[in-house]
Write a protein that binds this DNA or RNA. Structure first.
Lengths: 167, 167
DNA sequence: GTCTACTGCTTCGAATTCGAAGTGCGCCGT
DNA sequence: ACGGCGCACTTCGAATTCGAAGCAGTAGAC
């Protein structure tokens, strides 16, 4: 079919706007809590959380950047900050001399633990309070396919993430 | 006061993470499209869209800031840029000498119209493609109460905030 | 009337962000 | 093995962001 006239029906538009607004508000609230509790920005928290979640406590820079949806240069900056604060360590990867492995320190884990309850409190009370258990399940069920779709559709001009081998 | 054990069940956690990731990815994609097509940042686009949507084509600064979830000082900056670009006009309100009324110009409307189709295209193909019509309805139905809840729960105020510094 | 508290916006300084360019390593074909 | 291409990360400069402080204008108490 030819491209339909480019427009979103009112329901789509509402969903889109609400999505943006909800996440913006949530992010602001969370950011404030993190700043107060642990003097962390949201990105820094995300990085620590990701590292703390890993079985090894470490990740490559690039994977971190992708995971958090962040620019590489920005990650370098934030990793530097976190390292200076003693929350992570950086070391060259053993197997690939190009890449850097970032590892969370005990101090990092401690701070994460200190900040986490408040974080969860905010998310819980802002995002989940008005939703029933089934609502949350439904939301998760809706977001998952969108997430997968987005992951598999890389930004238009960026290089497709091919490990090796050709198409 | 023994706060309830602060934790999110796995479903909630997944929904929360996906929400953040989806909007981050969407935002990046949209931002890129807007930059390419009309040399606009996302905030600038949001401001123009909001003004263009208004019956009068204008809004007070504060309402704009609240609408897009943005700091006041940031809005002053962006409004200045938009004005310099001839996309909006600023004039003191007749009834309240303190407040400034921002109005979209014809050039602003033109740029908005130029940029909108691509914007919709991106949102459509990234966010809505993997969702059926009913899915979207369900999503909208879930987000609306959350949005209302957040709006009615103003950011916890007046905590002595520490200086920005260090990690 | 006028004093005081509050609101709306701007200015200011510092921190964060990104993209482009730069450096060095690893992979592949010849 | 050599050479070119591509990847991982960093550096650099410019633009954007925020909060705190500052400057009017407004509203309510008395």
């Amino acid at each position: 079919m030819p491209d339909s006239p480019p427009s979103l029906d009112p329901v789509q538009l509402g969903a889109y706007f609400d999505l943006i607004e909800v996440t913006s508000l949530l992010r602001h609230a969370v950011e404030q809590q993190l700043r107060e509790t642990g003097d962390l920005s949201y990105v820094q928290f995300q990085l620590l959380a990701r590292l703390g979640d890993s079985p090894t406590g470490s990740h490559r820079m690039t994977d971190l950047a992708d995971g958090v949806v962040y620019s590489r240069s920005g990650l370098t900056y934030q990793a530097g900050l976190l390292e200076k604060a003693g929350l992570v360590m950086r070391a060259p990867s053993p197997d690939d001399e190009r890449s850097i492995t970032v590892t969370i320190t005990d101090a990092g884990r401690a701070l994460l633990a200190k900040v986490l309850p408040g974080h969860i409190e905010v998310v819980s009370s802002m995002l989940f309070e008005p939703l029933s258990r089934d609502d949350v399940k439904a939301l998760a069920g809706l977001l998952a396919p969108v997430r997968d779709h987005m992951r598999s559709t890389p930004p238009r001009s960026a290089a497709p993430r091919r490990r090796r081998g050709r198409a």
